[in-house]
């Protein structure tokens, strides 16, 4: 039995996961918590949010995120990939910045539109 806090949403339910009972989860208020409890003990994943460099835009950094969670162990490698990105404004919200990031099947996408400066 392992106790953990669900981090899927800000509610932070306290979960109990029973490894001997096929990773049965209790304490969750919704199905997403059960899924979190199961994967967290077997193959923990996280959504990465960071920023990338953008030239000619309203701001110098564009916020981005993975469109689904990637293995936690890959976060540093994913940061290194994001650090290599050089974009030119304008960028559309949801635009794919790096497809299939590190072969995970997740895309790195823009989490806002970045209009060109003065536009």
């Amino acid at each position: 039995m392992k106790e953990l806090v669900c981090i899927v949403c800000p509610r932070g339910c306290r979960l109990t996961v029973d490894e001997e009972q096929g990773y049965k989860v209790t304490g969750n208020s919704c199905p997403r918590g059960a899924e979190y409890g199961r994967t967290e003990l077997q193959n923990p994943t996280r959504t990465l949010t960071t920023t990338v460099c953008v030239a000619g835009g309203l701001h110098r950094r564009l916020p981005v995120r993975t469109n689904r969670a990637i293995p936690k162990a890959l976060l540093p490698a994913a940061m290194a990939e994001a650090a290599r990105v050089r974009l030119q404004a304008p960028v559309a919200a949801g635009q794919i910045i790096i497809p299939n990031l590190l072969g995970t099947g997740a895309d790195l996408i823009a989490s806002r539109a970045m209009p060109a400066a003065g536009a």
């Binding site: 949403c9 949010t49 920023t51 995120r65 989490s111 806002r112």
Partner: peptide
């Protein structure tokens, strides 16, 4: 919200997890 680039916004309001800029958007 424009500087809160992490996710965790909107689960109650939109039923999905958004970043700050997405929620504002």
């Amino acid at each position: 919200l424009n500087q809160c680039i992490h996710n965790g916004f909107g689960l109650h309001r939109f039923g999905e997890e958004l970043t700050g800029p997405e929620y504002a958007g």
